[in-house]
């Protein structure tokens, strides 16, 4: 494949909706275990740490530790839901089941397939984030109407991590490869993004690293919005998330083209 075509911007058609619908139809058959999986794990962590650790920590950044942690977990659940869909599920469809191979025999391009997967993973991420918001709303930790403004943030968070996940998927040799990304990238990111504790208390070097992490920017938006306050730097945070989404999808397009078209 010529370099120009390898690096060309993705050309997407509305047919990507058919890919999204395909994945939705599969999900509908397995919806209950999928929702439980999305919810149970973060909720157990949230309630365990929120009440357990919260009893020791007390107040943090002017709110209860539970409220602090809950906002972090909304963003983190969204990140993980997008990531798992773009890694393991997409890899199954790309490599194991040869679903992508079948789709491009129809009048579909690889970019249509990738974009369909991208929006699908972001949709699942949004659903996971909304489930978390719903639960913490029941416990009175979401303040409306401003909490509703967290929804577009979750959309953007899902798009950013789905795109990054698809880029990793494009260079993966197998399922084991994903452990590198999960343990070496996402777990440290969760630690440095102000999910469990405020970044402001950390050394300047760590704060500088946090400033370029997409999860940090998601938390910076979600936490104030859920507690009914307007974020300090909303446009910067949104721009970083949008940048990761756009650059991540372009990267995913290039590495997947290289993998499947050359």
């Amino acid at each position: 494949m010529q370099r120009a075509r390898l690096f060309a911007p993705p050309r997407i058609s509305t047919r990507l909706g058919a890919v999204w619908r395909r994945n939705f139809l599969v999900w509908r058959k397995l919806a209950l275990p999928s929702i439980l999986g999305n919810l149970a794990d973060p909720l157990i962590m949230l309630f365990g740490l929120g009440y357990g650790l919260g009893a020791v920590v007390g107040e943090i950044a002017g709110t209860t530790y539970f409220a602090f942690l809950a906002a972090g977990f909304v963003a983190t659940s969204t990140m993980y839901a997008a990531t798992f869909e773009a890694l393991f599920s997409a890899f199954s469809r790309m490599h194991v089941q040869r679903t992508w191979e079948a789709i491009v025999n129809a009048p579909m391009t690889l970019e249509d397939v990738l974009a369909g997967e991208w929006f699908w993973a972001a949709t699942k991420a949004l659903a996971a984030g909304l489930c978390m918001i719903a639960v913490i709303s029941v416990f009175g930790y979401a303040h409306y109407p401003l909490a509703l403004a967290a929804i577009p943030v979750l959309v953007l968070t899902g798009l950013a991590f789905a795109a990054l996940g698809l880029a990793v998927n494009g260079i993966a040799s197998g399922y084991d490869f994903f452990s590198y990304y999960l343990t070496l990238v996402l777990t440290p990111m969760m630690m440095l993004s102000g999910v469990f504790f405020p970044v402001e208390q950390m050394p300047a070097a760590i704060q500088a690293i946090a400033a370029v992490l997409p999860l940090h920017h998601s938390v910076q938006l979600v936490r104030p919005l859920l507690s009914g306050e307007w974020p300090a730097t909303p446009w910067l945070n949104l721009a970083v998330l949008a940048g990761y989404a756009a650059a991540g999808f372009y990267l995913a397009t290039v590495v997947t083209r290289r993998r499947l078209l050359t």
Binding site: L25, R98, E101, N105
Partner: peptide, 26 residues
């Protein structure tokens, strides 16, 4: 196109396989 390796969707029924594939043609 009938590919060399079966790429039928294992999560779908026979009819769903046809329906979903037809959507790729619009």
């Amino acid at each position: 196109v009938v590919p060399q390796f079966d790429s039928l969707d294992p999560d779908f029924t026979v009819a769903e396989n046809l329906l979903v594939f037809g959507r790729y043609f619009g």
